[in-house]
Design a protein around this nucleic acid. Structure first.
Length: 241
DNA sequence: ACATTAATTATGT
DNA sequence: ACATAATTAATGT
């Protein structure tokens, strides 16, 4: 029987079941007993939306597995503006500075929705890599994917116009974090026009105009902090005109 | 082709 | 009632 740490609700222990990790790529090749010892070393936390998981430049003392929710990775420009580098959906690792050969976090991670994260002290990273089959190769894959995405976004910024950039950003969002609903695909976490503008290096006003225009054309519908894509194909066309 | 500024309206606690 | 989000128009680069 598990005693909850009621004195410290921020760090409340959930009942951690092996099935939480067993289907996730970095751990999928492991036996139940192995996952058990991994879980026993983990700290779990519930985080509200908009809370920093870690900050750019902080000593990278822990790494994280996002169990539920979404996290966006931010960088601050020299002039103090936020730029969103990418979104991370649940089931992925984050704060994996060690894999990049760093001892500080290269960016800030903020929860985009209510989230649940597991974390381990960074000193366990090398142990995981050495002892757990598939852990290293899977994390390499996700790193590769993220670098790839950031690259294509940089190319977009340099070559495409605003309308095509936000169209592309929306398409990526529905691909990575979209949930099928009645008549379209819904972005699965609260997203403002400000957020979208930070993803596409434009202003919230321009995003607002574009979304309004697209809504009239029946391509999207949006409420406050909510965007649903009705016609992805139309966005694809917009993104390559 | 876009940003900026500003005024106005809507929406959630 | 208050703060935050979104829209809209006018003006600037």
């Amino acid at each position: 029987m598990r005693i909850m740490d009621t004195a410290n609700p921020r760090k409340t222990l959930l009942k951690l079941d092996e099935s939480l990790l067993s289907h996730l790529p970095p751990f999928s090749r492991l036996a139940k007993s192995q996952i058990r010892v991994i879980l026993d070393q983990a700290t779990s936390k519930r985080l509200d939306a908009g809370v920093a998981v870690f900050n750019e430049g902080d000593p990278a003392d822990r790494f994280y597995m996002l169990l539920d929710g979404y996290v966006r990775v931010l960088r601050i420009t020299p002039m103090g503006e936020q730029v969103t580098a990418l979104h991370i959906p649940s089931g992925q690792l984050l704060g994996i500075a060690q894999a990049l050969g760093r001892d500080t976090y290269p960016a800030t991670a903020v929860t985009a929705s209510d989230s649940i994260v597991l974390s381990w002290p960074m000193r366990l990273w090398d142990v995981f890599v050495a002892e757990y089959d598939g852990f290293a190769t899977e994390t390499r894959k996700t790193i590769g994917n993220r670098v790839g995405e950031m690259n294509t976004r940089i190319v977009e910024m340099a070559t495409q116009q605003v309308e095509q950039r936000v169209a592309n950003a929306l398409l990526r969002l529905i691909n990575q974090t979209g949930r099928k609903v009645e008549g379209g695909i819904l972005i699965d976490f609260p997203i403002t026009r400000q957020d979208l503008s930070e993803l596409t290096a434009t202003t919230l006003h321009t995003v607002s105009r574009l979304l309004s225009a697209w809504e009239k054309q029946g391509i999207v519908v949006s409420k406050r902090k909510e965007i649903k894509v009705l016609n992805p194909h139309a966005l694809v066309e917009l993104s390559q005109s």
